[in-house]
Design a protein around this nucleic acid. Sequence first.
DNA 1: CAATGGCATGGAAACGATTTCACATCCGGA
DNA 2: TCCGGATGTGAAATCGTTTCCATGCCATTG
Lengths: 343, 343
Amino acid sequence: MVTIHDVARLAGVSESTVSRVLNGNPHVDGATREKVQAAVAELDYTPRSYARMMKGKPSDSVALIISDVSNPFFASLTRGVEDVVQREGYSLVLGNADRGEAKQRQYLDRILSSGIRGMIIAPAQNTLTDLKRLAKDGVSLVIVDWRYPLPYADNVYVDSVDGSRQLANHLIGMGHRRIGVITGPHGDVTAEDRVTGYRLALGEADLSQDEELIRFGHFTTDSGYEECLHLLTLDPRPTAILTANNRLAAGAHHAIVNSGLSIPRDISLVSFDDVPFVPTLASDLTVLAQPDYEMGKVAAELLLERMHGSRPGKDRREVVLPGRLMPRASSARPTTAADVAAG
Amino acid sequence: MVTIHDVARLAGVSESTVSRVLNGNPHVDGATREKVQAAVAELDYTPRSYARMMKGKPSDSVALIISDVSNPFFASLTRGVEDVVQREGYSLVLGNADRGEAKQRQYLDRILSSGIRGMIIAPAQNTLTDLKRLAKDGVSLVIVDWRYPLPYADNVYVDSVDGSRQLANHLIGMGHRRIGVITGPHGDVTAEDRVTGYRLALGEADLSQDEELIRFGHFTTDSGYEECLHLLTLDPRPTAILTANNRLAAGAHHAIVNSGLSIPRDISLVSFDDVPFVPTLASDLTVLAQPDYEMGKVAAELLLERMHGSRPGKDRREVVLPGRLMPRASSARPTTAADVAAG
DNA sequence: CAATGGCATGGAAACGATTTCACATCCGGA
DNA sequence: TCCGGATGTGAAATCGTTTCCATGCCATTG
């Protein structure tokens, strides 16, 4: 491998001078500069970034830790991040933590040891101390996907309260009065927020709030299936179901179909996340689409701002992006007694 | 930041000894080892990986260069790669090169300067010399997505010839005799291979090969639209169209619908790639699905094998994965004169 | 008991770049 | 003419870690 030494020898100057040329130091004679540049080109020399880091130059990578790139939401977010950071000359280190704390900790350790100075993360639960540690070591942080009030970090997320309110309003507007909700675990900010929006919509429409219609589970397909089965046994059965993410929607869809019911004739189904986890659902499901690419883009911009120190560390930014309701075939007016009589 | 020096001081030993403990060198007394480990834990010390690289230790990152993560095919491939490399203790550096040579070269330069020893790449056109340069510098290479006969690199791809043969056979089996093809540019291996499979299927069925049914364009939605419009003007019009990738399919779909024709009644549409570029298409399009995750997994395994030197550099591996035909609603028996009379 | 060898450990060099410091030269102004 | 400052350059120190080499000790052996 060719080093700065080889370049210096070929150009007939010292290593210091080569370094100066490479770093745009003005105290170099024009002729010397050209000799050095010629030698660099000749030898196809690129400085090793890890050697520069030894002298305190910051890393040229930033990290992105998400739960799963193969989830189209995160794939698009990733692309948004990458477009911005690559434009500014950074490389992107990607980690899929699957919302697991242990796996996430592995990544964080590796980030620390690799000298990376900035990270965007969709964090797992209970990782406050891990994140604090990073922040203490001077790593710039932007948290995405959730509302996550960490004082050292910026935060970009979609308004879950407003989003589920939109979804619920959509159903209420169609005439639904008995709407089931399936969400994530108790204590999960997102899971709770999405219920809050639902309650808000119900309150605004002066509808009664029946607690048995609200099911807390886990953001998984299996959980969506089970909780939905439970909702379907209620009497009277809800005429619509709102799921708090795409996996829950996939499970719920499965449960509804398995129960011999038809969407949207017997029951309407709407969900957060515009994600084709079940291909058959993709084109039909009424969803609240999240601005995925945009979220990555904004997060990356905030991150670089922080890393370049153009904003005091205490100035915490919180960007709340709006979701967009995409009404599709899975939601319709509820079938009323009159309809049944007519049908 | 805490360094090995701090650990040494706290443990009351030399830096050499700390290093030995960290690297599992057996020539360390049990008691000393424990003292060191205690100090490491106490100070929460992690060695800087860039400092170790200075002494010739290999990088703990590998690179993955693809055209676009937000393409679900690549997203899933990425996940496959990441799962394998992370399990083996590596980090993944991701680059989206958009099939652009310039952007790709940027990434390759950065890889070189960062000391990364292994890369998986879905290369842009005309990048042979760039890749050779990497190989010359000792970077292990695995090429994915294409058949790409670079002597220094392993290669994992889906059998395009067989895949398009399957698609064409599917149509022929349904009774289609006049099948249009829209593919990528002349000279593109994949574009050509996908036509080859089509020709093969036609030949095997003793069908005449009409050259005007074969359209070379660019792997873009716009190109799919234009070329499809052209095919629709032919007389007699083809009863089915085979597109060589998902973007072409999206364009062709648009063209067909815009022309007032209906799928599959007036014309069947089948395509390579199981990718919902147009959501409405996702659940209906007959496709040849590529084993995306698997491809990433296999590529990563080959890469690590190479990097760990468990296989001589001259032993080039080529893995050809089979595609899977997914018959769906967009393909059907052609409407015959009899049908028209009946209808 | 002296020589030998293995073992635990520390000191110092080395990796490839940047940066500080020192030195020489040159210029303009007093 | 002499001095101060700017300018161009090289030598040397430095970053954090690994590794080679040297050293001292203890146990074994003849």
